[in-house]
């Protein structure tokens, strides 16, 4: 599945060996974890993060292979290279986990997130919101005389940027799905 064909849990051939392992600079990594779709599997993964004090910036999960009984968990996490390496090894140790991939180091990947924004207001602010939404290719999925609900898809920083713009224009509520990601190419 991965471009580099890195074996689950392997450390000797990891791309990490190219960088200082015990650097204290925190990095953001996107991990794709293929797990057995069974009760409690999400709790195992989340319990690992809380129990060992790792960060979760975002987490999404859904079944991706019904016949193979597999779900895909995409986790965005923050840590030093050593911590990231530990997270991957610890994930690989969970019996229900089939594969762990670090999309940040295993080659180029695409990341997308879906978000919905409710913006309330009247007059110019309302027009401005609609105009900006158009620039960001956000769709209007609900509208009243005093509100819009926009739907936007994109990389997380694009969604952050859109949120920053909407805030002065009457941003009332936000719902975000968290990141889904796939490696590019084949």
């Amino acid at each position: 599945m991965s471009a580099l064909k890195i074996k689950k849990g392997a450390t000797s051939h990891s791309a990490y060996n190219l960088r200082p392992t015990f650097s204290d600079v925190e990095e953001r990594h996107t991990l794709a974890v293929l797990v057995e779709n069974e009760p409690g599997v999400l709790a195992r993964v989340i319990g690992l993060f809380s129990g060992r004090g790792y960060n979760i910036e975002s987490l999404t999960v859904a079944e991706v292979d019904h016949t193979g009984h597999l779900s895909r968990i995409t986790i965005v996490t923050l840590g030093t290279p050593q911590v990231i390496e530990q997270i991957k090894a610890q994930l690989g140790r969970i019996v229900s986990v089939h594969e762990v991939h670090d999309l940040t180091v295993e080659g180029p990947s695409v990341e997308r997130e879906l978000a919905m924004f409710k913006v309330t207001g009247q007059g110019d602010k309302r027009v401005e919101a609609l105009r900006l939404a158009d620039i960001f290719r956000a769709n209007v999925v609900d509208s009243t005389l005093e509100s819009f609900v926009f739907e936007i898809t994109g990389a997380p920083d694009k969604i952050d940027a859109f949120a920053d713009l909407m805030r002065p224009l009457g941003l009332a509520e936000v719902a975000r799905t968290g990141v889904a990601a796939l490696p590019r190419g084949d």
Binding site: G9, A10, T11, Q82, Q86, A89, G92
Partner: peptide, 11 residues
């Protein structure tokens, strides 16, 4: 035998 033991504490 456990990859998570390696580099956990000591490089």
């Amino acid at each position: 035998i456990d990859p998570s033991s390696i580099n956990k504490v000591i490089k």
